[in-house]
Design a protein around this nucleic acid. Structure first.
Lengths: 327, 327
DNA sequence: CTGTTAGCGCGTTCAC
DNA sequence: GTGAACGCGCTAACAG
């Protein structure tokens, strides 16, 4: 910056201003600065800028797994909103582990991110402490937290699962199996399980533990879970899968066995990905507004950074049942 | 840091050392420092550290689209290698636009990233200039560049497409349609198209332009492309789709129409995602080592940052044809 | 509107 | 093995 100030014949301060708030500088100066900047291909050092102004323009995002396409839409939405506001995105993987989340939070706080989005609502004690002490705006997402750290943008896993279970019953299904992702260290899975049983209770149906199966999220696991459920409960007439990969895995298994869906068994899924809409038969599912969640999270963060009052915000973006051919 | 130095009764310098190279500090000092650090929950300011040492530990990654699950595996691999080396990942979206890529590169260079991974091998002039002048290690990926900026880790889109086309011919297919992602501003698509025609030429098959269709990457687009191809060429006996979503969309369309696959028509895909393996019938495809590409890219970057000589490296990770039921 | 001064919080380099 | 001085490149707060 010194260099280009010298070559433009102005002070470094003028260069700084010309770059950040061109309006605050006379046209002449601006032109000289711009010329020199272009000539040398000068790129202001944002590290130095951040240190000096103690403001950064990087937001940290921590997700359980980048590979999971579910988060991809959300990540993209966050990324787009941030970019529109001249900000950047750092990503870390917590891999469903609270320790890894803690490490990621510490790292991001060390990088002095100006905001943080967590796809998680249960945290280690130290994570909460760090977050609270840091004063950095935090968005929690993935579930509606009882005791939010700062802001929360999500939908209710409990209500969504409950609603779909009730929906299946309304369609006449009486023996509904539920295949969930692993429950350990996953508050969302636990909530879903609770929602499923709450619905059964309301319906006066037997809440049989053997109707619930845990499965890692793969196509084979979905197929396998279906088979195991049907073997244990020959009268099973519906399977509700807490993930589109599980559901489609089960659907493929039905195709292989020549089982009619929904005639022999109905299949319902979680999350509205394109695959479910185009599968044959198309699959009934819960539409979770993942992208909207990402968008709103980023927007709230941006607003807060632009001076919005630091008040606890809790946004419930809801969900929707998408009835299709498979139920 | 001043504070905790005071509270630990040592100089700031000792704190700095105790944190970065604990071995270079006596046990006593280290203990005092650690205690103070823990008491105050002190997190070293990496911004200041980076500025002072003019070294950062953040790598920038620019992909055409975060949502595309293809990149997800690669991103995750990069993320994991970086984390294992105490580094961090910033992500930006270029949306297949060279301008957006240029903006992202400028932004990342401004953030003084210590390395850059681009999923792209054709760049705007200014992008190349910035990159070369910056001296930052760069990995290009997505295709094997003719004129790499620095390092490249990829496979050959040309060879892969050619190989699959030859494979389909070897299986007896004579009228092979090719459905490609949009060609505009996408060097990978263009390479694939070339590979397809190269194979036809080798085979002595007519290289009919109407056998190639451009399609945006959705299930409906795949279905639609298949229908259009078959309408134009009733004797079409194979469809090769440059993306798993397109291929599966076409497969679903066959299911709806009751067309036997591969009896009536064979279907081949690009990229080995789980969906293709579990679809009914399972789909023949090209296995592109996406994760491996991410891993190697990150590793090369790390090695370079640890002092490996700055030589042009070009790694071809190859591909593999996975023969399944659909062909 | 422009320039000057004084840090931001560390790491580097050198003494001790 | 430890500490003091200095500077990384920029911006805040003032003065002109």
């Amino acid at each position: 910056m010194r260099d280009i100030a010298r070559h433009a014949g102005v002070s470094p301060m003028t260069v700084s201003r010309a770059l950040r708030e061109p309006a605050a500088v006379s046209e002449k100066m601006r032109a000289k600065v711009d010329a020199a900047v272009r000539e040398f291909g000068y790129l202001p050092n944002r590290i130095a800028g951040s240190l000096s102004s103690s403001r950064s323009n990087v937001v940290g995002l921590i997700v359980p797994g980048i590979r999971n396409s579910l988060y991809a839409g959300m990540i993209q939405a966050v990324s787009e909103v941030l970019r529109a506001n001249g900000m950047h995105l750092m990503i870390a993987n917590s891999g469903h582990s609270l320790e890894d989340e803690e490490a990621a939070v510490a790292a991001f706080l060390g990088q002095r991110v100006c905001g943080l989005v967590l796809h998680n609502t249960t945290h280690s004690k130290r994570t909460r402490e760090m977050l609270e002490r840091s004063g950095v705006p935090v968005i929690e997402t993935g579930n509606l937290p009882d005791d939010p750290i700062d802001m929360a943008v999500s939908y209710s896993n409990f209500e969504a699962t409950r609603a779909m279970t009730l929906h299946l019953a309304r369609l006449g299904h009486r023996k509904i199996g539920f295949v969930t992702l692993p429950l350990r260290d996953n508050d969302r899975s636990e909530e879903r399980r609770r929602g499923y049983f709450a619905a059964l209770r309301e319906l006066g149906l037997p809440a049989d533990d053997s109707l619930v199966l845990e499965a890692a999220g793969g196509f084979s696991e979905g197929a396998d879970a279906l088979v195991r459920l049907v073997n244990a409960h020959p009268d099973l007439d519906a399977g509700f899968f807490a993930g589109e990969v599980l559901a489609v895995g089960a659907l493929f298994e039905c195709q292989r066995r020549g089982w009619d869906v929904p005639g022999r068994i109905a299949i319902a899924s979680y999350d509205d990905v394109d695959l479910l809409k185009h599968a044959v038969p198309s699959v009934t599912t819960l539409r979770i507004p993942r992208q909207e969640i990402g968008r709103r999270s980023a927007e709230l963060l941006v607003q807060r950074l632009q001076g919005a009052p630091a008040e606890r915000v809790k946004v419930d973006l809801g969900f929707e049942i998408v009835q299709r051919e498979s139920t």
